[in-house]
């Protein structure tokens, strides 16, 4: 087998793993968009907020320490304890649920029935507000997130591929774990949507609000639930990304990576979000590997958007969306 091909396989696998993260963020978008027609620009910031909250809780940081110190002239910073990862995650989930409730109660509830562009603007406001809150609550320095996930070169894969091709693949353990967790998350979501009462209600709300009301579904409850689920998905994405590259504000920019994924997969399709994320992840890495050297590199910055644009022209409904037929 040629070296080029062997390297390509490695690049492909790494792209797949990077794509998992895009899929997760896109999934958060799709959930909220389907249920309420809101394009949630804040999804990326939610991932950041969740990751920062998790780090803050685990390290025993005093929330709003800066604010408290400035107001009262105190010097508090830490509670002096640390919280184990599992409890930290549970508490963070709680925080994300409270956040979901707050977003619905104080913002979205008052905007029901408004134009999509207005809802979108509201989520832009939410994104910046949340970013500010995250900053105020936990401080803006880069943090390391360590919840004990395995990291570094997977030696088994390295050895096996070395024996097969005479070249050992570099696959990060963290990427493998992330993929497995993401897959489990998606399976859990599908089971939830298909087989539970709340999941059925969620699908009903996504389909038709009026009909949902008439069969006794509390729309407010479902919307808070959906924002909570999206918050949980954001937490998972935030943890993955944070464990890899540190928890920092650039994390919120993964939302921008999810955009081309959504154009590819369609805004309302869960399988679309997953497959779209993987395609962009793989496409981006392979393109950089094959074409990057010819054009001076840095193709990863724009490849996803160009691919999405091509898709928009030829298949505007996305991979799995229904064909758009103009009614006349």
């Amino acid at each position: 087998m040629s070296d080029q091909l062997i390297f390509s396989i490695e690049v492909f696998l790494n792209g797949l793993m990077a794509g998992v993260l895009y899929s997760l963020v896109a999934l958060g978008f799709v959930l909220i968009y389907k249920a309420s027609g809101i394009f949630n620009y804040a999804q990326g910031v939610m991932a950041l907020f969740a990751a920062m909250t998790l780090v803050g809780i685990m390290e025993g940081q005093v929330p709003f320490a800066g604010l408290i110190n400035a107001t009262f002239g105190t010097e508090v910073r830490n509670f002096g304890w640390t919280v184990p990862a599992f409890a930290g995650i549970a508490l963070t989930v709680g925080v994300m649920i409270v956040l979901a409730w707050g977003v619905h109660q104080f913002v979205m509830r008052h905007l029901v029935g408004q134009d999509p562009i207005i809802l979108f603007m509201a989520t832009i406001g939410l994104a910046y507000f949340l970013e500010g809150v995250a900053d105020l609550m936990w401080g803006s320095e880069i943090k390391t997130l360590d919840i004990g996930l395995p990291m570094g070169l997977n030696e088994t894969i390295d050895r096996v591929t070395y024996e097969m091709f005479g070249y050992g693949f570099f696959i990060d353990n963290l990427d493998i774990v992330a993929s497995v967790i993401a897959a489990l998350l998606v399976i859990a979501l599908v089971l939830f949507a298909q087989y539970t009462k709340q999941g059925r209600a969620m699908r009903a709300v996504a389909d038709d609000h009026q009909a949902a009301l008439s069969v006794g579904i509390d729309l407010d409850f479902i919307w808070v639930m959906v924002w909570s689920v999206a918050g949980f998905v954001a937490l998972v994405a935030g943890v993955m990304w944070g464990a890899k590259s540190g928890v920092q504000f650039s994390l919120s920019l993964i939302a921008l990576k999810a955009l081309p994924v959504l154009m590819l997969g369609g805004f309302t399709s869960i399988p679309g979000a997953i497959v779209g994320g993987l395609i962009i992840g793989v496409g981006e890495k392979l393109f950089e590997f094959w074409v990057g050297p010819l054009v001076g590199g840095a193709t990863e910055n724009w490849f996803a958007y160009v691919l999405a644009l091509i898709f928009l022209v030829f298949r505007p409904q996305g991979l799995f969306g229904d064909k758009i037929i103009e009614r006349v």
């Binding site: 699908r203 038709d208 009909a211 008439s214 069969v215």
Partner: peptide, 30 residues
Amino acid sequence: ARQGIARTFQNIALFEGMSVLDNVMTGRLT
């Protein structure tokens, strides 16, 4: 609806993306 009052609409409000069975099943949610 939870008090036991069910309705249909003049302009039909069904869950268009679901099968007939799933639609009728949502009637059992209460």
